[in-house]
């Protein structure tokens, strides 16, 4: 299994992403260091999810460069990352088999997989449901399963794309607790949200985007108390950005 301290920091160097003639990410430059929970904040269509997909290698930039500048082998960077999506994808198998699947992908020996799966299910609060088909779980439980499945890979970086956007408050709280637990276990969190309350609860630092551009990068307390840009101030006041 991967050890931490291999791939971070992640550097975006004037990254642009163009699709069908539209410039969806525009000259985006930022450095993401280990340790913190980074929240990418911004209105719908700001390009938040695209930044995650570009980081994770699901999309390739049209121009500019994305580099993992850690000491580890950059070509094997994908082994140290995991991503959880807004709509959880659960395999049509049992809850336990969903975790076993990713462990077998990472070539974890079978005897070890059982123990790791059981431990991960307990952490996710899903151990009692381990033999049930994953698809019968509630949306919140499926998202916890997706988080547990990401966690069992022990990633150095975990990307989360609006992980609670379709969940009720109780499930949102559980998912947020789990994100914090994963962070405390040493994983860098990079997450998008358009929910200001959630950003206040979770963020150590903020990347604020609008129309594909980086508008403001700040430590979380600083950002919420004293936003430096008019766009950020307007967003924090709940105004609609032009």
């Amino acid at each position: 299994m991967p050890t931490h301290g291999q791939i971070l920091p992640l550097v975006f160097d004037k990254v642009s992403y163009v699709a069908k003639g539209a410039r969806l990410v525009d000259e985006f430059s930022v450095t993401l260091d280990p340790g913190t929970r980074t929240i990418i904040l911004g209105p719908n269509g700001a390009g938040k999810s695209l930044i995650l997909r570009l980081s994770h290698g699901l999309l390739q930039p049209t121009s500019g460069a994305i580099r993992w500048e850690g000491p580890g082998d950059g070509n094997r960077a994908s082994l140290h990352q995991a991503m959880v999506f807004q709509r959880p994808m659960t395999l049509r198998r049992s809850v336990g088999a969903n975790l076993d699947y990713v462990l077998s992908l990472r070539k974890v020996p079978r005897e070890l997989r059982r123990a790791k799966t059981a431990a991960a299910l307990k952490r996710a609060g899903l151990f009692a449901m381990r033999s049930r088909p994953a698809r019968v779980l509630s949306a919140g439980e499926q998202q916890k399963l997706a988080l547990g499945r990401a966690w069992v890979m022990e990633p150095e970086v975990l990307f989360l794309d609006e992980p609670t956007a379709s969940l009720d408050p109780a499930a949102t709280r559980e998912v947020e607790n789990m994100i914090n637990a994963i962070h405390q276990a040493g994983t860098k969190i990079i997450m998008t949200t358009h929910d200001l309350g959630q950003a206040r609860r979770l963020a150590d630092d903020i990347i604020f985007m609008h129309q594909g551009r980086l508008i403001e990068r700040a430590e979380a307390g600083e950002f919420f108390e004293h936003p430096r840009t008019p766009q950020a101030e307007a967003f924090l006041n709940g105004e609609l950005l032009p």
């Binding site: 082994l79 991503m83 395999l91 198998r93 699947y101 990713v102 992908l105």
Partner: peptide
């Protein structure tokens, strides 16, 4: 439904085929 997450897992083509056939059983 699976594409992005399987790509994220780092699943190769052969394994992807097997996974989809099994899940579509």
């Amino acid at each position: 439904e699976y594409g992005e997450q399987l790509t994220s897992f780092g699943v190769g083509p052969g394994r992807a085929v097997r996974t989809l056939l099994w899940d579509g059983r």
